[in-house]
């Protein structure tokens, strides 16, 4: 039982005991290649996770890089991959993992995976163990999200399938939508969805990308910023549980 800060701070300050995790985890944000909103979310989430103490590497596509600030931003490593299918992306994720493994901080590799790329095989094993979808609350989008979740589980049966609600105006609306989504998912498949909160005031995410500053720096008090931080916090909590 901790009696001193020293018992705790080493988890954050880069001198944690090595060997807690075999290698960096990877998180696949399932989104279409031209989804600018997903790019804005990924960029802000990556920065927030880095702000919370993770070493984050983002395997980007050419489409991502066209939207992202050309200059490096503190706390985030970006590795451009020209991959056009899952096996190429899996190689890039492995490369990013190897780079992060040299870091002393706990590491997470982030990649955007187009749902059309999902297929069984070794690449799915490497890239789809932990997935995240951005799900609007309407029925059509929920059904689409469930279909993608089923494809993920067909390719990687033990995958953790996460969902973040967006295009909602309140926590209550997000909760209702997730409740419906989880129920519909249970009715249509054996998939169990993991909740990763919600996003609010999404225009702020676009603005941060245009301003080339993560929300936490651009608008630290905004609801959108708190929502991104909460999503990152939930991701980090599961990351930590997996490492234990």
């Amino acid at each position: 039982m901790a009696r001193e800060l020293a018992d705790v701070l080493h988890h954050f300050l880069g001198d944690s005991v090595s060997g807690e995790r075999l290698g960096p985890a990877s998180l696949a944000l399932l989104s279409e290649p031209d989804d600018a909103f997903a790019v804005a979310v990924a960029w802000n989430l990556a920065h927030e996770l880095a702000r919370q103490g993770l070493a984050v590497a983002w395997v980007t596509s050419l489409a991502d890089e066209e939207l992202l600030p050309p200059d490096a931003t503190p706390g985030l490593t970006r590795l451009l991959s020209p991959a056009q299918e899952l096996s190429g992306l899996a190689r890039a994720v492995s490369e990013a993992s190897a780079k992060l493994a040299a870091s002393r901080a706990p590491g997470l590799v982030l990649a955007r995976v187009p749902p059309g790329w999902i297929a069984p095989g070794p690449a799915a094993e490497r890239t789809l163990a932990w997935t995240l979808q951005l799900v609007p609350p309407d029925l059509e989008q929920r059904i689409r999200a469930i279909a993608i979740a089923r494809r993920v589980l067909a390719a990687h049966p033990s995958a953790r399938v996460g969902a973040v609600l967006h295009e909602v105006r309140s926590v209550r609306e997000a909760e209702r939508a997730f409740t419906a989504l989880a129920r519909e998912c249970a009715e249509r498949s054996d998939a169990r969805l993991t909740s990763y909160g919600l996003l609010l005031d999404e225009a702020e995410l676009y603005r941060s990308l245009l301003a080339r500053r993560p929300l936490a720096l651009l608008r630290p008090e905004a609801r959108a910023t708190r929502a991104v931080a909460d999503v990152a916090n939930l991701l980090r909590a599961d990351f930590a549980c997996d490492a234990d």
């Binding site: 926590v171 989880a182 929502a227």
Partner: peptide, 14 residues
């Protein structure tokens, strides 16, 4: 609460 039953998670409040 329904929140727990559904598995919805969030540290935010309206």
């Amino acid at each position: 609460s329904p929140r727990r039953e559904s598995g919805f998670r969030s540290g935010l409040r309206d």
